[in-house]
Each structure stands twice: as C-alpha cells, then as structure tokens.
Write a protein that binds this DNA or RNA. Structure first.
Lengths: 203, 203
DNA sequence: AATACCTGATGACAATTGTCATATTCTAGC
DNA sequence: GCTAGAATATGACAATTGTCATCAGGTATT
C-alpha cells in the first residue's frame, strides 16, 4: 500500500484527486491539505513516517509546492515528492529538480498518467512530463533578486514611486533595475518583461 | 439517470470529475471535451437530446463557458447549464445569469456540493455559490467595447503603437480610450486598470 | 594598501504615457 | 434639413518611464 499526502489549494480538484487515487487498489490518500505549510507541518510534527509520496501543486498560498519540496529535501524526509502543476515553465522544473523532486507532471495530462507516475516513483524511478524534457535546457533565470522583486510589483501596475517605497530603494534605483530586467529579457517595457519572466517561471 | 456533458480544458480535472460523477448512482457523464466549441458542436449536431446538464468551466480556448452558455440559451436547447469556475468575479456571474445559466459554483468548493448542485438543478432549481450572492450587486461593467479591447492588449505589455495597429486605430485614440478606462476604474495607469478590470471579470 | 566588485544613488535626456480641449465625420432621431 | 450624440483623430502639455554614464560607499581579495 502506497501512502499519499496531497497538497492542492483548489478544493474541487483536491477532493476529486483524493477520490480517484483511493479507487486504486494499492493507493491511499492518508491526508490532504490546501497549502504547502499545512503539508509540511503534517510531515514534520505528526505522522511523517506513514507517508510514501507527497503529491503537490506549485502555486498555493502560504507556502508553494516548490518551497515544500525544498523543505522536505533539506529535512531529509524519507518521502518522495511529485509536483503536479498547470504550466510548463522551465524555471519551475529546474527548481524542482534542485529540490530532489522525483516526479513532475502537468495538470493537462490524463489521470491514468498520474497514477502510473506514482507507482513508478514509489518503485524508485522518476517521472517527468515529456513536454518538459525539451524545454528543460532553456537558459536559466537571468534576473537578480532585486530585479525579480521590482518586476513582481510592476506586474500589478504599481508606479516606480510605489515600488521604490515597498522595496526601500530610491525611485532611480528601481528604474535602473527595471531597465536592466528589460534588456536582459529583451522586452520593450516593464510589463512585457514581467510577462516574459512569469511565463518562464522566474517570478 | 441524469446525463451530463462536461467541458473543462484541464485534462486532469476533467478526468477526475468525470470519474467521481460516474460514481454516483444516478449521474452519468455521456461526453466530455476540452473547449466550449467542441461542447456546442456535440450538442448541436450529434446527440443533444441525450444531455440533461452541461457542466462547464469558463476560461477555455476557442470558446469560453460563458459563450457556450449563451449559444445554448439562444438555440433554446433543452439542457440546463452549470458553470464551474475558479474565480468569484461578479461580471462573470452577471453574464452567466443573462445567459440562462442555472448553476454557478466555484472550483474552490467541495465536490459533494457539485453533486448536490447537479441534482438540484436537474429538479428544476438553481444553485449559486453563496460567496457570490453578496458580490452580485456590484457595479456593472463600465467599460466600452474599445476600452476593453485596448486594455486586454495593454495587459500583455504592448505599446500604444502596437495596440493601435492591432485595433486599426490611431495611437492618439488608443491613448484616449486607455485614459478614459483609467478614470472609470480609478486607476493610476493602464496596467492597474487592466488588473482591476480583470479582477471584476470585465476583460 | 591597492584593487576589483557589488549595491544603491544621481542627473540628464529621450521616449512613452496620461490628460484634456478641441476638431471631424458619421449616424440616428426629430 | 437640423441636431444630438457616437466614434475617431489631433495637438499640446505634464508626468512617468527607459536608458545611460557616472558616482559614492561598502566588502572581499590579493
């Protein structure tokens, strides 16, 4: 019997996944939760030893699936992590691999592939969505930390002034960072830069 | 037996939903597809008479769930439509109600509520997510058609010039539209305006 | 100490964007 | 025909943004 911990913030999908996984003879969802934080707490303080596979979404409030994977990795938990996410962003895959993730698949693949991936990972293998193998060699994140933070705020339409005060920088410096982000990403303005960065999983 | 047509572009969720609905004694997913267009084609040319409930996501490629609902409504199909979507945007709900939709619920609610909603709608009732009843009285979409289209392009970081050529307008006119959108939405710039409009379901 | 390097800041200038007043058509209604 | 109101365009001006050269203060290395 393979014991699974499920982390996914959308309740409908979480319920549905739990149901179809439980339908399999040798799969059992022992716990499911809506944020990475809750999943990590469960692993750390409660019943970690019972869990073989952690199946997690990426974009969740409180703690993302990538952060969860990293924490589990650093805590040397015995479980194996599988990421299940919407977008094929090479930056995400890279971070996942760096965090010792054993499986990475897309929500846009049939559910039997998920079940196959769980079995395969549990037997010691790995399962990466084939769509991603191609892209995984894309250039790595060229942004500095400050550039990234400025871009995130710019994406929501904040003005230079607002960004500057949120980051405790001068407006001029913020414009420098955004300008450099634009040239790195070959974008015409901060918004296009933010879009490109987001599409690549760099935000 | 209630016959269901399922339209949802995310394969994993589509499969999972189909499975859990089929587990119910009196529910049966007769067909499932990934776009509104495919769903409408199925209803129109093939086996429309067998379908009691159309269960549809909103944001799908090719044809959205709201457009699907509108087409089914205008074609006076006998089926009843239920929308299942991620965000609680009052603009979406308004358009759904105008298209004769009988149910509107959020992906962030447990799956048993979906099943209950299907039963209720099939018996002639309606099922609206309670979170939405409050918001539904929000102000209606203040944007004109041109403003909306300009905002959509601005959201992706296109320059005034680019937007103008895509809409076959002069750059000056585009700036007028964006400026008016900003003042209508009380935004400081086009990006903030686009974000506000998107959050309200007006894009 | 001398050097290089990194982060943050400044000033100057051009390009883009936001705002507003004012045309120019074109259409619908009277 | 006349008028009102749209949709579109133009010009002017201010504000914001993008780009670049340069500077000041730290820190690390040799």
């Amino acid at each position: 019997m393979i014991n699974i911990l499920l982390a996914e913030d959308q309740t409908m999908l979480r319920n549905a996944l739990a149901t179809i996984l439980d339908l399999e003879d040798n799969l059992q969802v022992v716990h499911s939760c809506a944020t990475g934080k809750l999943a990590f707490d469960y692993m750390q303080y409660q019943h970690g030893q019972q869990v073989d596979i952690v199946l997690s979404d990426i974009e969740m409030p409180d703690m993302t699936g990538l952060e969860l994977a990293q924490h589990l990795f650093e805590a040397k938990m015995s479980c194996k992590t599988i990421i299940l996410t919407t977008f094929a962003r090479s930056g995400y895959l890279r971070r996942a691999m760096d965090s010792g993730v054993k499986g990475y698949l897309l929500k846009d693949s049939p559910s039997h592939e998920l079940i196959a991936a769980i079995q395969k990972v549990h037997q010691g293998g790995s399962a990466i969505a084939p769509e991603l193998m191609v892209e995984s060699w894309m250039e790595k994140d060229p942004l500095s930390d400050k550039e990234r933070r400025a871009l995130r705020l710019a994406k929501d339409g904040l003005s230079t002034e607002d960004i500057a005060s949120k980051l405790f920088l001068s407006p001029g410096t913020v414009r420098n960072y955004l300008s450099s982000a634009c040239s790195k990403l070959d974008a015409k303005n901060r918004i296009e830069a933010a879009r490109i960065a987001h599409q690549n999983g760099w935000l």
